[in-house]
Design a protein around this nucleic acid. Structure first.
Lengths: 136, 136
DNA sequence: TTTGAACCTTCCCATAGTGGTAAGGTCAAG
DNA sequence: CTTGACCTTACCACTATGGGAAGGTTCAAA
């Protein structure tokens, strides 16, 4: 059994976030010592590691909640896991699209701005324009 | 002079956000009618439009604060505007990098998951792994 | 004139994820 | 017994946005 700071180091999460995940019900409340200190078993360390991996792939807390349930269900169908992952991939695609549009527009503006001592600047001009920015 | 809902429609922002931008000091407090209703002048409508355009390019409130100052300064150097935009471009690049890494890892996992009735699933397996996810 | 719809106001709460800090308890070593 | 490093809970902050409640205003229709 490890204390929370050890569990944090081991899992790559912060103590703060481990408590938070417990607060929001992502993980079961940890066992406590007589003094009230949280104690983590090896199985819980695995779970915390799982959570960190999932977070690093951009899964939301809600999605991780589902992933943990699938993980703990020996009768799961990998289809469900794959679907969840594919849905997240679509979200990532969507975010990329948004960023790419911003990038394209901004790169265009930057390319057309002299960037010298003169106050004339297409960036300011086009942002001031009543026209659209290119987003539908 | 327009009321806030008209200013919202005109600028493409919500009334809610216009009040918020006033709260955080992004725009000057609007004039008020005797009854306390906010009133917006054409110049303020321009400013709101500017803010919406800048937001649609992903500029943060803090960055827009700077952009507005440059916009209102007739003795600005376009160099400053360009630098601000370039810094934001770098941030966009950074975000894209993160998303791309997630995307690549997740695509790999998804490709290797059968997605059938069997419980065997590399996605679950690799998230459960103590190893790294590919992020440094 | 009264009433009702459609506005407006402020204030609080929620989202998602993370960090910080403060006030206090615990434990082990010196 | 003190000190330092840990733990606890309970707040507040951030970004940007939305929702809603409780109450005031405006204007038109009946």
């Amino acid at each position: 059994m490890m204390r929370i700071s050890e569990a944090a180091q081991h899992s790559g999460l912060s103590s703060k976030m481990i408590r938070h995940y417990e607060d929001v019900g992502l993980i079961q409340p940890a066992a406590r010592t007589e003094a009230g200190y949280r104690q983590y078993s090896p199985a819980q360390l695995d779970q915390l590691g799982f959570i960190r991996h999932a977070r690093s792939l951009g899964f939301s807390i809600a999605q991780i909640r589902d992933l943990l349930q699938l993980r703990d269900n020996p009768r799961r169908a990998s289809r469900e896991v794959k679907q969840l992952a594919q849905k997240h991939l679509q979200e990532l695609d969507q975010q990329m699209l948004v960023l790419k549009k911003m990038q394209a527009m901004l790169e265009d503006l930057v390319a057309r701005c002299a960037g010298d001592d003169s106050p004339d600047c297409v960036i300011i001009d086009e942002l001031s324009d009543s026209g659209e920015t290119g987003n539908e």
